[in-house]
Each structure stands twice: as C-alpha cells, then as structure tokens.
Design a protein around this nucleic acid. Structure first.
Lengths: 204, 204
DNA sequence: GTCTATAAGGTGATAGAC
DNA sequence: GTCTATCACCTTATAGAC
C-alpha cells in the first residue's frame, strides 16, 4: 500500500477512536486495528499519540467552526434570512458529525496549551457579525440586544441538543431515540423561528 | 482518623479528580494523594475505580438535575415569573459547579449501562411541566410552541455557555475570561428575557 | 513501509503486617 | 483502618529485521 493510503486509513481510524473515546480513552492499539496496520507503523507515521491527536483535533475543529462569516456576508438576503440560513446549514453539518462538538468541548475543558494554540489559529473573527447585529439594532429592525448574547443563544440552541442528546432523550422521551430524532429535525425551523420571534422589533 | 472522615476526604478528592479529568483520565493515585491516604485504602473503602466513580457520578447528577418541578409547582407566581425564577436559580447552581454539566455529558456520551441506570433512577418527570406549557398555549398567554422545544431552549441557553466556556471565551472575547464572566452574569436576566420575548402572545 | 519483539513505565488491584 | 510491598496487566514507544 502506498503512503497516502495508509496515512488516510490511520487518520480515519484515529478520528473515530479519538472522537468517540477522547484522548485519554483512545488506544493506539485500537486505532492500528481499525486502520488494518500495527502500532509500530502508527508511530512511524505520526511519532506519538499526542501528535496524531493534534491532527485529528485540528480537523474536527475546522468542522465545528463553520464558515459562519460566509452566510453573513451575503447581500441578497436580510438579517433574519441570514439567521435562518445559518441555523439550517449548521444543524445539517452537526447532524452529520454529532460527536464532534462534545469532543471539542471535552478536550478543551482543561485548556491544554497544545490544543489552545490550534484553536487560536483557526478561530474565526466574529467582529463583522457583531457589527452587523449592532447595525440592525441601530436600524431598529431588531430590539436592543448585546451581540454576544445573540450569538451565544444561536449556538447554544443549535449545539446543546446534540451534545446532550443522551440525557435529553431520557428526560424528554424516556429514552425513545426516534422521538428525539424527530424533535431534532424540527429544530432546523424551530430555532430560527424562536430567535426571530424574540429579537424582531414588535413595532414594525 | 475515623471512618466517616476518611470516606468524606476520599469522596471530595474523587469528585475533583473525576469531574476534572473524566473516568478515563482520573488516576486512583491522584485521588489517594489528594485525600492524604494511599491507594490500598482507597480500595478498602470503595473496592474499585468503577464503584467509586458511580458514587461521584450519582452525586453530580443530582446537582445537574435541579428541583425544576418545585418552581413550576408554585401557585403564587405566573408562568413567566416561573421561567425567570428557574433560570436565575439554575444559573446560580451552575456557576457554583461549572464543570459538572460537561462531566455528565461526556460520561454519558457512550451510554455505559452502569451510568444509564443511575440516570434513569434519578431523572425527574417533566410531564407536569409539559402539561403546564400546553395549558399556557391553550389559554393563549404564550404562542403555540411544542413543550419539548421550549424546555430544550431554556436548558440550552442556560447550560451551553458554561459547558463551552473555553471556546466561547476565545471566540467572543479573544480569551479574555473577565469579559466572559461578565457576560455570564448578565445571562441571569438575559436568558429569561430572551425566552419570554419569544413566546409571549403579541396580541395581549 | 511494514512487520515482530520488546522495552520502560504506568495502572488498578490485592496480600499481609501492624 | 491504615500501611508497605508487590502482582498482573496494559499502554506508549522504540529497536531492528525484512
């Protein structure tokens, strides 16, 4: 097998293992097995568990941080439509990678400097969005709200139900996963509706 | 030292270690050190890492699941006031134990049956609250909304900013923890305002 | 590039003395 | 109840042959 193929196999296997079990829970042996190779080759390619982990984390973080800015730079739709587009798009991404947010959050919980560095490199600049929110407040299309709260509310309602799906499923539906899946699919419309209802200027 | 004291020391040390590092990351040696004893005594008291973990998890989960029902059973305040009271109370609890939600979520991610059992035992019954929301919709005090979405929205906006505080701090404030702490304190009022603005019937 | 074999150090857990 | 000493196993990582 050529280099590129093996490397790709390792990355896919490591992605699964790290995201599913976290850095501490992941086993190099398990990654090697899943990639169809042995541990020695793993170290030949990535030298250490830590190095391999950082590659995976970086990939995952890129997915977690969506190209939010893109949607908000469009000029053909208004602010409310931007929110709708963002939420629907983001929930679709999260539905495809439901374990990534929890992975990122958990690995970042103790702020290991190795990872913080990665985050700082990739983290997007939200100031254009902040300015846009403030502009809408000034225009009067939305009521007075601090931009950081609005951003946090959107992200909370989008991400949390996926991160906490095991508990939420148990508490809301006594463990019925099908019902919870239905609820999640409804949220593509619900979340943006809920937000817009809250922020729109009632006098318009 | 008498039994009760040592046991309490162990539990406190284990709480810190497990909640900070998770089951996989926690070390029995570290717990023993923190409790001022040795590993052997740890096993004398709790027989295994797993057993000790389950004690800690149970304690933590009891805190994570607040006595929501209490607030919603009060008859001296209206529905909106109940939401305000709940959010403020819950955010205060979370502020005192900021690492617990992430701990619960992470440990539950792979649904180990040992823990799922604990959750099922303690999990509260939300049906009274669901009914109350539906009643408010019928009365017309709030617009039509599925109760599960409303509950999820409240919990999301309360818990997520704390669970994801490391990333949120970096993205929103370039890592300035003080600014983020201020934002969090504002949320005791903001979250309930945001929700009430969204659900209140505009025709009243 | 890929393998087998093995090193080096940690980890949960127990035996047995006090 | 509490300790020291130790076991048995597992984990990451490397050496060296092919």
């Amino acid at each position: 097998m050529n280099k590129t193929n093996t490397e790709e196999n390792i990355i896919q296997a490591a992605e699964y293992e790290f995201i599913e079990r976290g850095f501490e829970g992941a086993r190099m042996q398990a990654i090697a097995d899943k990639a169809g190779i042995n541990k020695a080759l793993l170290h030949y390619y990535f030298r250490s568990k830590q190095k391999l982990f950082e590659v995976i984390f970086k990939n995952a973080f890129k997915l977690f941080i969506p190209r939010i800015l893109n949607v908000f730079e469009r000029e053909d739709i208004n602010f409310f439509e931007k929110i709708e587009a963002f939420v629907e798009n983001y929930l679709n991404i999260l539905a495809k990678h439901p374990h990534i947010p929890g992975f990122i959050i958990h690995e970042l919980a103790n702020n290991p400097s190795s990872i913080v560095k990665i985050v700082q490199e990739i983290a997007p600049d939200l100031s254009p969005i902040k300015q846009q929110i403030e502009a809408e407040v000034s225009k009067g299309t939305i009521r007075n709200i601090r931009s950081e709260h609005l951003i946090l509310n959107v992200l909370s309602m989008s991400i949390f139900p996926i991160v906490a799906s095991p508990i939420a499923t148990m508490i809301l539906f006594n463990g019925d996963k099908k019902q919870y899946a239905t609820l999640l699919s409804e949220r593509k419309n619900h979340v943006s509706d809920f937000i817009i209802q809250s922020i729109k200027n009632p006098n318009l």
